[in-house]
Write a protein that binds this DNA or RNA. Structure first.
Length: 137
DNA sequence: CACGTGACCCCGA
DNA sequence: CTCGGGGCCACGT
């Protein structure tokens, strides 16, 4: 399993305890909490891209922030269901660490997500979006 | 306060 | 396909 700490420069551990990440949400910003809230709603067998998570969390185009946050909060969410956008409705594993990257793909395949020969996931088939809030009208 | 950095993304050349 | 360039934003230094 993935026990290995994936600490990359700058990404802190839980600010309060310095270890356990289970309640890490409370220690972080509101943006992080919203990101977590969105990711937790992705059902089994479906995926979202970093950019889509940012949008649905009302964070505009802060896709980068989602990646940053997820790296720190992965213990608290189904992290495997977030992929990187690779143009034209195709998403791919975006994790640099090969151990985690492989783990992500295996977990998704176990949920029924299919990867093409080139490693892409068809978002028209496996993509998930939160139902739109009907705010305007 | 100012940078640098990062599991990102879009666009144009 | 590869490169830049600009945008996003939290966090560490």
């Amino acid at each position: 399993m993935v026990n290995r700490r994936a600490n990359v420069g700058g990404v802190p551990r839980n600010r309060r305890t310095g270890e356990d990440n289970r309640d890490i949400e409370a220690a972080y910003s509101d943006s992080y909490r919203r990101i977590v809230a969105v990711i937790r709603q992705i059902p089994r067998g479906k995926v979202m891209t970093y950019g889509q998570v940012a949008e649905d969390a009302n964070l505009g185009r802060a896709a980068r922030l989602v990646g940053y946050a997820l790296h720190a909060l992965w213990r608290t969410v189904p992290w495997q269901r977030v992929l990187g956008m690779r143009g034209r409705g195709i998403a791919k594993v975006s994790i640099k660490d090969p151990i985690f990257g492989t783990e992500q793909r295996l977990r998704l395949e176990k949920e029924g997500v299919r990867f093409s020969t080139s490693g892409g996931v068809d978002l028209s088939e496996f993509g998930f979006r939160l139902p739109k809030k009907r705010v305007k009208r």
